[in-house]
């Protein structure tokens, strides 16, 4: 027990337990009014406290589903459903994941490209940077439908419109991080390259790029998470293509709160897995580049 408390496990478990208790209590409190109405309609006058609590935790369309209901829905909609079925959360998660990854790849490439231009050309920093910053002040919820509907009108549907929205969000941290990263080489490291009469490409590939790698990974961790948000928001604008965003949308149309919460948790879990994957890639690259452990 003492070992458990000394490590990280015990504090995490305690916080999880507290959240769970709070959640169950909130479910009783939030679902009680509707349950009271239901019981009155059914003519059930004397429902015991224990039974009543059990009822609030097992409604079909609760205001706040209890954790075990969400967990059950996640289990049924992933393991319990054929993966090719439109009812499978794994199917929808895979749609969102592919849009996220494509958008993230495009956004990272765009961000790196812009950063390279900015670092090598002072005029482009003054001309591009205000637009880059302005692009992120526009609410993505306002832009996403225009992109999806606009591209749909010219026949571009499916993965690409959603990926473009992911790209729109994820290029920004990469630009900012890489401009900083590509500028980290010190004056004497650049002077050294000059004494070798190195070409601009050699200065970039042998000095600026490796120096910027830590900044790239920090940016990509932010970028991959907001890529997922971009894909989900893109799906909200087009419910034909499927995806976790569509599950959220249909869930809210039909008052299927359990379905909404299950999709939310899958999205959050997906984001966590993606960020962890970027972190793992970062550790591998760091090791290959001789970073101090």
């Amino acid at each position: 027990m003492r070992q458990l408390l000394a490590g990280k496990t015990a504090p995490i478990l305690i916080v999880l337990l507290a959240i769970g208790l709070f959640w169950y209590a909130a479910a009783i409190w939030m679902n009680a009014p509707w349950q009271t109405t239901l019981n009155q309609r059914a003519g059930l006058d004397s429902v015991g406290a224990t039974e009543f609590i059990g009822q609030t935790w097992s409604q079909d369309k609760p205001v706040l589903p209890a954790p075990h209901q969400v967990a059950g829905e996640i289990w049924n909609a992933t393991v319990g459903t054929d993966i090719a079925s439109k009812r499978s959360l794994a199917y929808h998660a895979s749609i969102t994941l592919s849009a996220t990854l494509l958008g993230f790849a495009l956004g990272t490439l765009l961000g790196i490209g812009l950063a390279v231009v900015i670092v090598h050309n002072d005029a482009s920093e003054r001309s591009l940077m205000p637009w880059i910053i302005a692009s992120q002040t526009i609410p993505i919820l306002a832009i996403a439908p225009m992109v999806v509907v606009g591209l749909g009108a010219v026949g571009v549907t499916g993965l690409l419109p959603k990926a473009l929205i992911s790209m729109y969000l994820s290029f920004f941290p990469v630009v900012v991080g890489m401009v900083k990263g590509l500028r980290t080489p010190e004056a004497i490291q650049l002077d050294l390259m000059h004494t070798y009469s190195a070409t601009p490409w050699q200065v970039f590939s042998k000095l600026r790029w490796p120096a910027a790698i830590p900044f790239l990974f920090a940016s990509m961790k932010v970028g991959i998470a907001i890529s997922l948000i971009g894909a989900v928001v893109g799906e909200l604008s087009n419910n034909a293509g499927g995806g976790l965003g569509v599950r959220l949308l249909t869930g809210s149309y039909n008052g299927q709160t359990i379905q909404i919460w299950a999709a939310l948790f899958i999205a959050a879990g997906l984001a966590a897995v993606l960020v962890i994957a970027v972190g793992a890639a970062e550790r591998l690259v760091n090791r290959a580049m001789g970073a101090r452990p």
Partner: peptide
């Protein structure tokens, strides 16, 4: 010429 700077300026990677 070869130039040696005040700091080693070795590339850490």
């Amino acid at each position: 010429y070869g130039y040696v700077f005040q700091a080693p300026a070795l590339y850490p990677w």
